[in-house]
Amino acid sequence: GMRLSNVFTAADTHPTDYPTVQAVDYLGQLLAERTGGRLGAKVYAGGQLGNERDTLEITTFGGLDLNRVNAAPLNSIEPLTIPICLPFVFGSVDHMRRTLDGDVGEEILASLTRHGLIGLCYYDSGARSFYNSRGPIQSPEDMKGLKLRVPGSDLYIGMVRALGADPVPMPLDEVYQSLAQGVIDGAENNWPSLESGRHYEAAPFYSLTEHLFTPEVLVMSKISWDKLSPEDKQVMRRSAKDSVPYMRNLWDAREASSREVILAAGVEVNTVDPAPFTELMTGMWDEFLTTPQQHDLVERILAQRES
């Protein structure tokens, strides 16, 4: 059977051509090259094996070897993943990449081990901003009364509520129709997702609040990990790290092409002064930071902001 071979099964909810899927594919090639074909990876893309929460559980059970997920669903498993998911904790993509490449990133990856997951590396998910069907958002006042879709996560709900809008928890696949029919006024996401979900057809105002830089995380099942020899563990770790620059190049290209498509479709895009948003946001952080360890991580993240 396939699980008896050394080709790792990997799950991803993004489509086949998405940078995260391509990166795990590339990781598989690196593994094959570096072990003379003993190891490899096979990605099941498009969420065909389940949504992120489901595949995460399956990975901890040892039913899948690798899993690429967003950091947000890890919040309900390990509280130390919360700091990198806070709104406005990162000021730019560079800040996010620098922090995650350093000891803060490593510490958070290591915290997953007690939950049966080996954190291998971070991938990018760019910046998330709000889009809606009413008009451009310039300041938090423009968000009053907007019904904005959020994923079913306490952090997103708290964030949108703190900004004065009405958070509507809703599964992603109901969003397009709900936007078109006016059940909701908008949602928030990064450039590539706004493009691939085509939500801009129904919500043509994209306001660059860049409130979240929540990264993607590649995890391995601890059960599969423990079966590897010390040398193979080394190869695995190194290959995962080596897939990160590859992924970031793909990501930057993908973001640029999505931006082009969205602008060409006539979507009104505006930049936003983050100051008033940041002020409202930092007030809600304490609701989600309950341990000294989390506070410590946040301080170390903020210390790495460019002055």
């Binding site: 559980e57 901890t60 919040n75 309900s76 498993i77 079913g152 996560s153 306490d154 709900i157 928890p169």
Partner: peptide, 15 residues
């Protein structure tokens, strides 16, 4: 047993 310490978001109870 395996998911006993996973939390269901917005409900705050065990998965």
């Amino acid at each position: 047993w395996l998911v006993r310490d996973h939390v269901i978001p917005s409900l705050g109870i065990s998965r």
